[in-house]
Deep mutational scan, measured.
Amino acid sequence: AVSDRLIGRKGVVMEAISPQNSALVKVDGETWRATSGTVLDVGEEVSVKAIEGVKLVVEKLE
């Protein structure tokens, strides 16, 4: 799938994300809905860990 190429890519949080709420991230110039197990604020850099349906699963870039 096209989205599989995004695993391992870096992105930027466009809307705050919490474990209860998905929000938008920008990866390679494209906007995607994403979820995370932690709270992520706007502007934080993230890494794509997986794809669940049409959502990216991201975590904060260390």
Rank of each mutant, 00 (worst) to 15 (best):
E59S: 06
D28G: 07
I17Q: 14
V25N: 00
V39D: 10
E52M: 10
L40N: 00
V42P: 07
V13E: 01
W32E: 03
V48K: 02
G8V: 02
I51S: 02
V58D: 00
L40A: 03
G43Q: 02
S47K: 13
G43V: 00
D4I: 11
L6H: 04
P19E: 13
R33F: 14
E52W: 11
R33Q: 14
R5A: 10
D41C: 15
V12A: 04
V42W: 04
R5F: 07
V13D: 00
G11S: 00
E59A: 08
V58Q: 01
E52N: 11
D28W: 05
S47H: 12
K49V: 15
S47W: 15
W32R: 03
R33M: 15
V57S: 03
S3V: 09
D28R: 00
E44M: 13
V58H: 00
S36T: 05
S3A: 11
A50R: 10
V39Y: 14
E44T: 12
E30A: 07
M14R: 00
S22T: 12
K10N: 09
N21V: 09
L6A: 01
V48C: 02
K60H: 06
V58R: 00
E52R: 08
L61D: 06
V39A: 12
I17Y: 13
E30P: 00
E30T: 08
E30C: 13
V54F: 14
G37N: 14
S3T: 11
V42G: 04
K55V: 15
D28L: 06
I51A: 03
P19C: 13
Q20L: 10
K60M: 05
V12S: 03
V12L: 07
S36I: 04
A50M: 06
A23M: 15
R5K: 11
A16P: 10
P19Y: 11
L56D: 02
V48W: 00
A23E: 03
K55F: 15
G37Q: 13
Q20T: 13
D41E: 14
A1G: 12
R5D: 09
V54Q: 14
V13R: 00
S47M: 15
S18P: 08
V58M: 00
T38L: 07
N21H: 12
V58C: 05
P19I: 09
S22C: 15
R9E: 07
L6M: 07
L6V: 05
V54P: 09
T35H: 06
G43T: 02
V57Q: 05
K10R: 10
G29L: 04
I7D: 04
L6E: 04
E59G: 05
A50H: 06
E15Q: 12
V13M: 09
G11K: 00
L40F: 05
S22A: 11
E45I: 14
L56N: 01
A23I: 15
Q20A: 11
D41A: 14
K26M: 14
E30Y: 10
E44D: 15
A1C: 14
E44L: 07
E15H: 08
G37M: 13
V57N: 04
L61S: 08
P19W: 11
S47L: 15
L61W: 13
A50G: 11
P19L: 10
W32Q: 01
V46I: 11
V39Q: 12
V25Y: 00
A34T: 06
V2P: 15
V27P: 01
E62W: 12
I7Q: 02
M14V: 14
V25W: 00
S36H: 04
R33L: 15
K49S: 07
N21P: 04
D41M: 15
L56K: 02
E44K: 03
E30H: 09
D41I: 15
V54A: 13
R5N: 09
K26E: 11
E44F: 06
N21I: 08
K49G: 04
E45A: 09
T38R: 06
E62G: 12
E45S: 09
V54K: 12
M14Q: 06
I7K: 04
T35Q: 07
E45Y: 13
T31P: 05
V54W: 13
L40W: 02
G53S: 03
G8P: 02
D41K: 15
K26T: 09
S36F: 05
T38W: 08
D28S: 05
S3L: 14
A34Q: 01
L6P: 02
S18Q: 08
S18D: 09
E62F: 11
V39H: 14
P19R: 07
N21K: 12
E62K: 10
L56I: 08
T35W: 09
V13S: 01
I7W: 03
D4K: 11
S47T: 15
G29P: 03
K26G: 05
G37D: 15
K10G: 06
M14C: 09
A1R: 09
N21C: 13
E44Y: 05
V25I: 10
K49M: 11
G53F: 04
V12K: 05
K55S: 13
L6C: 06
V46H: 03
V57D: 02
V27H: 03
Q20C: 14
V46A: 02
S3N: 09
S22Q: 09
G53R: 00
V57W: 08
R5Y: 09
I51V: 11
K60R: 12
S36G: 05
M14P: 01
V25M: 00
K60W: 03
S3G: 10
G53K: 03
L56P: 02
I51F: 06
G29W: 02
R5V: 07
E59L: 04
K10T: 13
G8R: 00
K60T: 06
T35V: 13
S22E: 14
K26I: 12
G53Q: 03
D28N: 07
V48P: 01
G29F: 03
K55T: 15
E62S: 12
G11P: 06
R5T: 08
G53H: 03
E59M: 07
V2L: 13
G8N: 06
L40M: 07
K49I: 15
V39R: 12
A23R: 01
E44W: 09
G8H: 04
D4P: 07
K55C: 15
S36E: 04
A34F: 06
A23H: 07
S3H: 11
I51N: 03
N21L: 09
G53D: 05
L40T: 01
V13Q: 00
G8W: 00
P19D: 12
A50D: 07
K60L: 07
T31Y: 14
T35N: 06
V58K: 00
A50P: 00
T38F: 09
E52P: 00
K26F: 13
G29M: 04
K55A: 11
G29R: 04
E62M: 12
L24W: 13
S47F: 15
A50Y: 07
W32I: 04
A23K: 02
L61R: 06
